[in-house]
Amino acid sequence: MALDFKELEKKLRETFGASVLDWTEFRGQPCLHVKRESIVKVLTFLRDDAKFEMFTDLTCVDTLRLPDEMQPKYAERFTVVYHITSLEHGARLRIKTYVPEDPAEVDTVSSVYLGANWAEREAFDMFGVNFKGHRDLRRILMPENYEGHPLRKDYPLKGRGERDNFPKYTEIPEA
Protein backbone atom coordinates (compact mmCIF):
# COMPACT_ATOMS: atom_id res chain seq x y z
CA MET A 1 0.00 0.00 0.00
CA ALA A 2 1.72 3.12 -1.16
CA LEU A 3 1.61 6.13 1.06
CA ASP A 4 0.08 9.33 -0.25
CA PHE A 5 2.63 11.96 0.67
CA LYS A 6 0.31 14.81 -0.33
CA GLU A 7 -2.18 13.55 2.21
CA LEU A 8 0.53 13.25 4.84
CA GLU A 9 1.74 16.78 4.18
CA LYS A 10 -1.76 18.15 4.57
CA LYS A 11 -2.24 16.25 7.78
CA LEU A 12 1.05 17.46 9.19
CA ARG A 13 0.32 21.06 8.31
CA GLU A 14 -3.09 20.79 9.96
CA THR A 15 -1.71 19.23 13.10
CA PHE A 16 1.41 21.31 13.60
CA GLY A 17 0.60 24.56 11.82
CA ALA A 18 3.55 26.92 11.68
CA SER A 19 5.95 24.31 13.03
CA VAL A 20 6.05 22.74 9.60
CA LEU A 21 8.31 25.08 7.70
CA ASP A 22 8.37 23.49 4.29
CA TRP A 23 7.90 20.36 2.25
CA THR A 24 10.27 19.74 -0.64
CA GLU A 25 11.04 16.92 -3.00
CA PHE A 26 14.15 16.05 -4.98
CA ARG A 27 14.50 12.93 -7.15
CA GLY A 28 11.24 11.62 -5.74
CA GLN A 29 12.48 11.80 -2.16
CA PRO A 30 10.18 13.83 0.06
CA CYS A 31 11.66 16.05 2.72
CA LEU A 32 9.90 17.66 5.63
CA HIS A 33 11.35 20.79 7.22
CA VAL A 34 10.30 21.46 10.79
CA LYS A 35 11.15 23.87 13.56
CA ARG A 36 13.51 22.43 16.08
CA GLU A 37 11.20 23.11 19.01
CA SER A 38 8.66 20.64 17.74
CA ILE A 39 10.91 17.90 16.36
CA VAL A 40 10.04 15.43 19.12
CA LYS A 41 6.32 15.99 18.66
CA VAL A 42 6.52 15.63 14.89
CA LEU A 43 8.56 12.45 15.07
CA THR A 44 6.25 10.96 17.70
CA PHE A 45 3.31 11.74 15.46
CA LEU A 46 5.01 10.19 12.46
CA ARG A 47 5.92 7.08 14.40
CA ASP A 48 2.54 6.49 15.98
CA ASP A 49 0.00 7.87 13.52
CA ALA A 50 1.77 7.64 10.17
CA LYS A 51 3.39 4.25 10.94
CA PHE A 52 6.98 5.35 10.33
CA GLU A 53 8.14 2.88 12.95
CA MET A 54 11.64 2.13 11.71
CA PHE A 55 14.54 4.42 12.43
CA THR A 56 17.03 4.58 9.58
CA ASP A 57 19.53 7.31 10.12
CA LEU A 58 20.38 10.54 11.84
CA THR A 59 23.08 12.85 10.67
CA CYS A 60 24.06 16.46 10.51
CA VAL A 61 25.19 18.89 7.84
CA ASP A 62 27.30 21.97 8.49
CA THR A 63 26.02 24.67 6.15
CA LEU A 64 28.98 27.03 6.68
CA ARG A 65 30.42 26.72 3.16
CA LEU A 66 27.20 26.05 1.31
CA PRO A 67 26.67 28.46 -1.63
CA ASP A 68 24.24 31.27 -0.92
CA GLU A 69 21.41 30.02 -3.07
CA MET A 70 21.49 26.68 -1.28
CA GLN A 71 21.56 28.13 2.22
CA PRO A 72 18.43 27.15 4.09
CA LYS A 73 15.89 29.92 4.29
CA TYR A 74 16.01 29.60 8.04
CA ALA A 75 19.66 30.63 8.16
CA GLU A 76 21.02 28.39 10.83
CA ARG A 77 24.43 26.80 10.82
CA PHE A 78 23.59 23.13 11.35
CA THR A 79 20.96 21.01 9.72
CA VAL A 80 20.04 17.83 11.55
CA VAL A 81 18.73 15.25 9.11
CA TYR A 82 16.58 12.30 10.13
CA HIS A 83 15.61 9.42 7.89
CA ILE A 84 12.74 7.21 8.94
CA THR A 85 11.09 4.28 7.23
CA SER A 86 7.63 2.86 7.19
CA LEU A 87 7.68 -0.90 6.74
CA GLU A 88 3.95 -1.02 6.18
CA HIS A 89 3.91 1.55 3.37
CA GLY A 90 7.40 0.84 2.11
CA ALA A 91 8.06 4.57 2.28
CA ARG A 92 10.93 6.67 3.50
CA LEU A 93 10.80 10.24 4.75
CA ARG A 94 13.54 12.75 5.39
CA ILE A 95 13.02 15.29 8.14
CA LYS A 96 15.23 18.29 8.56
CA THR A 97 15.52 20.65 11.42
CA TYR A 98 17.74 23.69 11.83
CA VAL A 99 20.07 24.35 14.71
CA PRO A 100 21.95 27.62 15.28
CA GLU A 101 25.65 27.73 16.02
CA ASP A 102 25.25 29.07 19.52
CA PRO A 103 23.62 27.42 21.36
CA ALA A 104 23.80 24.34 19.14
CA GLU A 105 21.02 22.55 20.89
CA VAL A 106 18.11 20.41 19.85
CA ASP A 107 15.87 18.05 21.78
CA THR A 108 16.86 14.41 21.71
CA VAL A 109 14.71 11.92 19.86
CA SER A 110 16.34 8.90 21.44
CA SER A 111 13.20 8.46 23.51
CA VAL A 112 11.11 8.27 20.35
CA TYR A 113 13.45 6.06 18.37
CA LEU A 114 15.84 3.94 20.43
CA GLY A 115 18.21 3.72 17.49
CA ALA A 116 18.90 7.45 17.62
CA ASN A 117 20.95 6.99 20.77
CA TRP A 118 24.34 6.33 19.17
CA ALA A 119 23.59 8.39 16.10
CA GLU A 120 23.06 11.44 18.30
CA ARG A 121 26.27 10.71 20.14
CA GLU A 122 28.03 10.61 16.79
CA ALA A 123 26.50 13.90 15.67
CA PHE A 124 27.60 15.42 18.98
CA ASP A 125 31.09 14.05 18.52
CA MET A 126 31.48 15.14 14.93
CA PHE A 127 29.57 18.44 14.88
CA GLY A 128 29.22 19.51 18.47
CA VAL A 129 25.46 19.62 18.40
CA ASN A 130 24.02 19.10 21.85
CA PHE A 131 21.02 16.85 22.14
CA LYS A 132 19.08 18.05 25.16
CA GLY A 133 17.79 15.27 27.37
CA HIS A 134 20.09 12.59 25.99
CA ARG A 135 20.97 10.19 28.78
CA ASP A 136 24.52 9.47 27.77
CA LEU A 137 25.89 12.20 25.55
CA ARG A 138 29.63 11.67 25.24
CA ARG A 139 32.08 11.18 22.42
CA ILE A 140 31.74 7.92 20.53
CA LEU A 141 34.29 7.84 17.75
CA MET A 142 37.03 10.19 18.86
CA PRO A 143 39.05 9.82 22.07
CA GLU A 144 37.43 11.36 25.10
CA ASN A 145 39.98 14.13 25.49
CA TYR A 146 39.82 15.17 21.86
CA GLU A 147 39.26 18.83 21.20
CA GLY A 148 37.14 20.11 18.39
CA HIS A 149 34.53 18.56 16.17
CA PRO A 150 36.16 17.19 13.05
CA LEU A 151 33.29 17.19 10.59
CA ARG A 152 32.66 20.90 10.98
CA LYS A 153 33.62 22.73 7.85
CA ASP A 154 36.11 24.95 9.62
CA TYR A 155 38.05 21.98 10.96
CA PRO A 156 41.09 21.16 8.81
CA LEU A 157 41.16 17.82 7.02
CA LYS A 158 44.58 16.94 8.36
CA GLY A 159 43.72 17.82 11.91
CA ARG A 160 45.54 20.13 14.25
CA GLY A 161 48.54 17.97 14.94
CA GLU A 162 46.87 15.31 17.06
CA ARG A 163 48.10 12.53 14.86
CA ASP A 164 51.73 13.45 15.40
CA ASN A 165 51.46 14.00 19.13
CA PHE A 166 52.70 10.67 20.37
CA PRO A 167 55.96 9.93 22.14
CA LYS A 168 58.74 9.31 19.68
CA TYR A 169 61.45 6.75 20.01
CA THR A 170 64.88 8.01 20.89
CA GLU A 171 67.72 6.46 19.02
CA ILE A 172 70.86 5.36 20.82
CA PRO A 173 74.02 6.43 19.06
CA GLU A 174 75.93 3.33 18.11
CA ALA A 175 78.86 2.71 20.40
Binding site: D57, V61, P67, W118
Partner: peptide, 25 residues
Protein backbone atom coordinates in the same frame (compact mmCIF):
# COMPACT_ATOMS: atom_id res chain seq x y z
CA UNK B 1 20.97 -1.60 4.65
CA UNK B 2 23.93 0.49 3.54
CA UNK B 3 22.85 4.04 2.89
CA UNK B 4 24.64 6.97 1.34
CA UNK B 5 23.33 10.46 2.00
CA UNK B 6 24.94 12.77 -0.53
CA UNK B 7 24.61 16.53 -0.49
CA UNK B 8 25.80 18.22 -3.65
CA UNK B 9 26.44 21.94 -3.95
CA UNK B 10 26.83 21.80 -7.73
CA UNK B 11 30.60 21.39 -7.78
CA UNK B 12 32.73 18.39 -8.58
CA UNK B 13 33.25 17.61 -4.91
CA UNK B 14 30.40 16.39 -2.72
CA UNK B 15 29.42 18.83 0.01
CA UNK B 16 28.66 16.09 2.47
CA UNK B 17 28.97 12.32 2.26
CA UNK B 18 27.22 10.39 4.97
CA UNK B 19 27.61 6.65 5.12
CA UNK B 20 24.80 4.93 6.98
CA UNK B 21 26.54 1.79 8.16
CA UNK B 22 24.46 -1.27 9.03
CA UNK B 23 26.92 -2.46 11.67
CA UNK B 24 26.59 0.76 13.65
CA UNK B 25 22.92 0.23 14.34
Amino acid sequence: ELGFYLVSDGTGLPYRVRIRPPSFY
